[in-house]
């Protein structure tokens, strides 16, 4: 949920942008990170873990833990906590590792 009236800080974001998460159109503030833009829209599950396929979201918010991976404009494993949201950005949740050794890959 977006904080509209911050208890001590001045208003920071003015411009609004539209972006997409798993093909759903969402509003965000220009200057927010992708992770925050999703949380502002009450989306906290950003992906699934690679082995056990468990839900993952923001943990450190500082670009270290990699728990907030998403796919942005087709690029996989992007840190959503350190990437700023942009107009028209296509974000999708980070799903567990692709089965590169599967039959579909000729193995």
């Amino acid at each position: 949920m977006q904080i509209t009236e911050h208890p001590v800080l001045d208003k920071k974001f003015n411009e609004e942008v539209i972006f997409y998460f798993n093909n759903q159109s969402l509003k965000a503030k220009k200057g927010q990170t992708v992770a925050a833009a999703l949380m502002a829209n009450s989306i906290r599950k950003l992906g699934a873990s690679r082995k056990l396929n468990k839900a993952r979201g923001v943990f450190c918010a500082n670009g270290r833990c990699t728990s907030c991976f998403v796919t942005i404009n087709g690029l996989e494993h992007v840190l959503s906590c350190t990437t700023l949201v942009e107009e028209g950005m296509r974000v999708s949740s980070n799903e567990s590792d692709p089965d590169v050794r599967g039959e579909s890959n000729g193995n």
């Binding site: 949920m1 911050h6 502002a40 923001v58 943990f59 450190c60 500082n62 906590c81």
Partner: peptide
């Protein structure tokens, strides 16, 4: 999701306004 460091929560409220 929902479990995070205290620092992450502080970043979200004060830097990200979320």
């Amino acid at each position: 999701p929902g479990v995070m460091t205290a620092g992450a929560a502080q970043i979200l409220i004060n830097r990200e306004r979320v």
